[in-house]
Nucleic acid binder design. Structure first.
Lengths: 212, 212
DNA sequence: CTTTTTATTGTCCCATGGGTCAATTCTTGA
DNA sequence: TCAAGAATTGACCCATGGGACAATAAAAAG
């Protein structure tokens, strides 16, 4: 298990508990296994091996397999979310806020087949895992609210809701496409696709109000 | 198991082989199990039980578990596909062809969480199963060609390709949404969403050509 | 009415996987 | 320096699952 040097980068203020470090390692290992093996092939031993530890340690830090993968889902989501938030901070206009969400969801180093495969496997378990379902709802709610913060300045309230749903669905769909056929959609394509969607819907809205 | 009455509806010409009937039953049973249990919880015994048969019979008709679920995927796709084709036959104008594809992909009795859950589980395995990947590619290619047959009459060739990708992604994304949060999107909402997308993109295209 | 396929079952085997536990090593704080 | 508590391991248990197979029942063919 390598060195015990205290990593200053983890949390300079309140020295991160040893156990927290381990837990994070294991969540990440779990996710890595998910990328390679899918949910059907993901086992505790593989996770342990990935983390360079023994199976026992995994169950020392997580009550059971289910809990481990629930935490893996949280972890993955946090990463995705951070990318969006970082961009959102720099956004000024409503349109910039939209672009922040869109581009953040297709970051170069995240919009990759392996990550997508793992994500898909987790989604496939959502219907049978109430905790995952809850996480999923939170993720979606935040995404939606991020979008609405921009959309409210661009479309009528009714349209805004509708467009937000469309954007999330389109983003998910493009991720799915990447997972099913790696290489079939590039980051630039994906971003352009969603931006065009928004532009099109907004144009439609303007036509309607202008015509009426 | 039930009766052995010869079903006239199966194939009136070349009396469908007994084995073919069994294989179909088992594919469907496999799919039903997938709906309930997901890929991680789907076992041969559960499939056998669902079909009211013994585990042995499942491996009599399919070389192994993998093959069984590959066939389940084909089965599911065939159903979805049939819905689109039926509508496509009645379509005359390019726009009607578009609507046929869109509405066919959200048929009332198909656009349901359980079917979506099963489909998700299968998709999650695609990256690790070359046969499934192939099926997936075929499905997508057909969908795309169906869309293009309508789009070619409505947009410039370049736009048509792009819009086709967007429509497929949006459809997939809406299915995913249904799977992750049952009840969060109705059939009507989904159809409207995709139609609005197409309308928006087409309006954008016209603006561009008119402006240039 | 045989003979030969085909359908079907139940049993068996063995690997794997989740989870428990006692024993051991490390860390830490007094 | 030592005791208390945490980290970590490996052995163990038991259920389950995939798959092989021989034995039986049922159809089909002759």
């Amino acid at each position: 298990m390598s060195t015990w040097i205290r990593n200053a980068w983890t949390d300079p203020v309140k020295l991160k508990r040893l156990s927290e470090i381990r837990r994070k390692e294991l969540r990440q290992a779990a996710f890595a296994v998910l990328e390679r093996e899918g949910i059907a092939g993901a086992t505790l031993e593989k996770v342990a091996a990935q983390a360079g530890a023994s199976k026992g340690i995994v169950l020392h830090y997580f009550r059971n397999k289910q809990e481990l993968f629930e935490h893996a889902m949280r972890e993955a989501n946090a990463v995705l979310c951070q990318a969006v938030i970082a961009r959102l901070r720099r956004a000024q206009t409503p349109m910039e806020r939209m672009d922040a969400v869109i581009e953040g969801n297709f970051e170069e180093h995240l919009f990759q087949p392996p990550l997508c495969h793992a994500w898909l496997s987790l989604c496939a378990e959502v219907p049978r895992d109430e905790k995952m379902a809850r996480i999923q709802r939170v993720i979606h709610a935040r995404m939606r609210s991020n979008l609405l913060s921009g959309l409210r300045g661009l479309a009528s309230p009714g349209d805004a809701d509708d467009i937000a749903l469309g954007v999330t669905a389109l983003i998910d769909g493009l991720w799915l496409r990447l997972g099913l056929q790696p290489g079939s959609v590039s980051r630039e394509q994906a971003v352009r696709q969603v931006k065009n969607y928004v532009a099109g819907r907004l144009a439609l809205g303007e036509l309607a109000t202008a015509g009426a």
